[in-house]
Design a protein around this nucleic acid. Sequence first.
DNA 1: GAAAATCCGGGAAAAACTCCCGGTTTGCCG
DNA 2: CGGCAAACCGGGAGTTTTTCCCGGATTTTC
Lengths: 215, 215
Amino acid sequence: MIRIILVDDHAVVRNGYRRLLDAEPGLQVVGEAGSADEANSLILHTEADVALVDLSLRGSSGIEAIRGMLLRQPKLKILVLSMHDGASHITQALRSGALGYLTKYCEPADVIDGIRRIACGKRVFSPEIAQVLAEEAIDGDGALAHLTPREFEVLRMLAHGESAIRIASSMHVSPKTVLNYLSLIRQKLDADSDFKLLHLAARHGLVDIHHALGA
Amino acid sequence: MIRIILVDDHAVVRNGYRRLLDAEPGLQVVGEAGSADEANSLILHTEADVALVDLSLRGSSGIEAIRGMLLRQPKLKILVLSMHDGASHITQALRSGALGYLTKYCEPADVIDGIRRIACGKRVFSPEIAQVLAEEAIDGDGALAHLTPREFEVLRMLAHGESAIRIASSMHVSPKTVLNYLSLIRQKLDADSDFKLLHLAARHGLVDIHHALGA
DNA sequence: GAAAATCCGGGAAAAACTCCCGGTTTGCCG
DNA sequence: CGGCAAACCGGGAGTTTTTCCCGGATTTTC
């Protein structure tokens, strides 16, 4: 019997999964959490084999939930179920210890199959996710990798809408230095437009698009 | 008895709502659709009072589903249930004929209550949504409103990452003209940074953030 | 320790942007 | 029909930003 806990901030979605999974022989939902905090406390007094977690929790991120749960229960197998197929979400989740990643568009049967395979320690990915991972691999770590820490910092602040001058004073350096960094960044990232810069920053999780751009 | 149809591309979510609503006295789910096309054909051979629709359908948009269904069944009351609280989504949905708009973060009880009120012809909004609508109202139609069609076009292309020169050739005008437009746009929108420009463009639906930025 | 990379900023040329201008076209209203 | 306002289009000059080059100080790496 595979014991499952659900981490998702939509009660209705949790209900749907509970109903789906409990109906399946060999699977049993033993707990639900609506936030990272709830997940962390749940894991302490529940014996679970697999956690199904949604990345976009309210308040805290699903990433936190993953880290917290693994800290308390290292043998837990984590399968991410997310709406998002952006590179940053995927790599962050995997680096945090998730074993698999499915988009919410996959069929219920795929989820069930995925859970069974995750429980055996296998990795599970939706086709779209595998695609994104492949592209990332080809990119060779992603373009942002060759940025120096300082350059990275500048880019992050820029993506948050700060002006060069504000960045400079915040970093306690001359505005000229920041401008020089920006020049280098544009060059390294092959970004001819500010849009492209923002694009790359967003893809790599430097800025929370949904919050920052309000979409 | 209020007859309800569910439009959402996640089978599990539909299941969750069906379970939730059928358990409620006076409510009954009479059909489900996973896409705008399915919704349109479903509405033809089903008598429904209320449609619960998710905006982010795969392929087609939920907006299309709303328009299609209202075309075939003008008396249908539509309640949008969406993850997104961006101004563009909300106004588009309402302009397309939706009567209410709830975020998926609200409680199941709120959804049930919302359905009952929508069925009576009342409008229903989550607090966050009401907030956004209020801000829009204060903005006075949104800053983008004073842009001329041509300026709007330039902004849209810019938001898609095109350079000024490419925009110019695409519009069959001189690059200088495009630069002048850009100048005006920045002025009208009070945007001191390109980031702010993108921010505004995104909020008003000129660019699909999730797709364009791959997040 | 030496070598390499990073951090930091100056200066000058090049590119981009702003602001102002005038001409043309379009649509509206007295 | 004759203004008239708004939008469309682009030139020119001045200002600002960006780029590209430089060299020295500091840190990391082998």
